[in-house]
Nucleic acid binder design. Sequence first.
DNA 1: TAAACCTTCAACCCTCACTTGAAGCTTGAG
DNA 2: CTCAAGCTTCAAGTGAGGGTTGAAGGTTTA
Lengths: 250, 250
Amino acid sequence: MATRQRIQGDSDRGRLPDSLSRPRKALTIGAVCKILQSEFDDISISKIRYLENQKLLTPRRTAGGYRLYSQSDVERLRTILRMQRDEFLPLRVIRQELAAGRDVDLGGDRPTGSAVRRAILVNSSNAYLTVDELTEETGAREELVHELEEFGVIVPEKRDGAAVYDETDREIVRTANELARFGVAARNLRVFRSSADREANLLETLLGASLRSRNPQRRKDAVESLENLAATVSHLKHLLLIRDLRRLTG
Amino acid sequence: MATRQRIQGDSDRGRLPDSLSRPRKALTIGAVCKILQSEFDDISISKIRYLENQKLLTPRRTAGGYRLYSQSDVERLRTILRMQRDEFLPLRVIRQELAAGRDVDLGGDRPTGSAVRRAILVNSSNAYLTVDELTEETGAREELVHELEEFGVIVPEKRDGAAVYDETDREIVRTANELARFGVAARNLRVFRSSADREANLLETLLGASLRSRNPQRRKDAVESLENLAATVSHLKHLLLIRDLRRLTG
DNA sequence: TAAACCTTCAACCCTCACTTGAAGCTTGAG
DNA sequence: CTCAAGCTTCAAGTGAGGGTTGAAGGTTTA
């Protein structure tokens, strides 16, 4: 869905060179690489060539032998890269899936809920959002955002005097907005914030030394442990909540 | 399917006090290997040891150092092997998934990729476990169970003078045991218990009236809302924790 | 014409997921 | 008590997957 919208956006801007708007310009390998760099930080020209070598792509060629990527080649490549990054599929399997006509699951452009198993603690994309983008993408009222800030549920950074938000903030706002529909007000969320703080402190005392270690391997291990711990802790909290709620419902 | 049978077996066993109803003895590594050979042809003793090395398993040991696999260890191993074979997940990711309490999808009935939307608040199976069953199935030391009780993390019911535990308790113990491996002691979990209590209270004030309503339809709706709320709240708590931890990792 | 960009191909490299082998200890049936 | 079968650790090795690098050279476009 997201992809489809993006394509429509593209065709909007394709209106300018009017006449031959339908078959858009084919790209060289370097251009393709630049385009995909924003979504995939590990892309490289040599990797794209490698994928072709592995029979995952077959772009056209110029008379001189240069590769030329059509729009659909780029889409296919994007699909491949997503399957690899988000679903951890080996190339052998991706090849089969594509051959079988299966496309990557791009249902509802939201990462929530669906199986995005990427590392969560390393902030890969450095995308920052303005308030407007935040309300736009989450569907929350701006008022809610301000309340969440007031109660410390989100803490935006200041950049050039304006508040900017990251992807975690966006998901928090999205979820808070969901809760608002059930009548949970922003001030009620202070409870959650302070528990989270306490819990983070606990984990810090456990792993802080390793996290601040001068040994990079040790630091990397510590971050991995922290991710596992965070997942386990969240699971435990969920179970405890369920347990309490069960008692409520009888 | 195997699991389904096992669950029925469990509930049968729930009423018998003890003794030879089943031969659920702990197994040595060779025995485990033989059992799994039918489902996974690439299993080997060295592979099982390797997985332990990678922190995916932690079987108990005999005084002499032999590994002893509980029923739940074997189940966990089976899950790992399925995730590896059927979903192509790398071990690093499997570790995460297990930490998050996600189990392999063994539905098979429906092709829908989405989660098992089983009701969580209505305790379907009335299986109760004894302490021995609890430690056996979770692989936790009995001492840990007692500590968890002491700190109010689990609160068993009394039946005929003996403590009995339900399935949520079992999952809590399982998860606490997981955390113990990271050095999180039972007393540290008090933090989580009190947060959960506060949060449950919050939700109760929001929905309590409906939950105690005399109108059955209204009560049913309230329980549904509560399940949604619980899921959303848990998600929010997770996000907040991640947010805090990100600040720690820099 | 020159700079920027592209080509192939072989060799190299790193990580992951194990396997192998040596040397030695444990268990349980007889 | 003995002894074979089975288990232990640890270091080193293996092979596939997924790329990267560099040399030598061709193509495009300003």
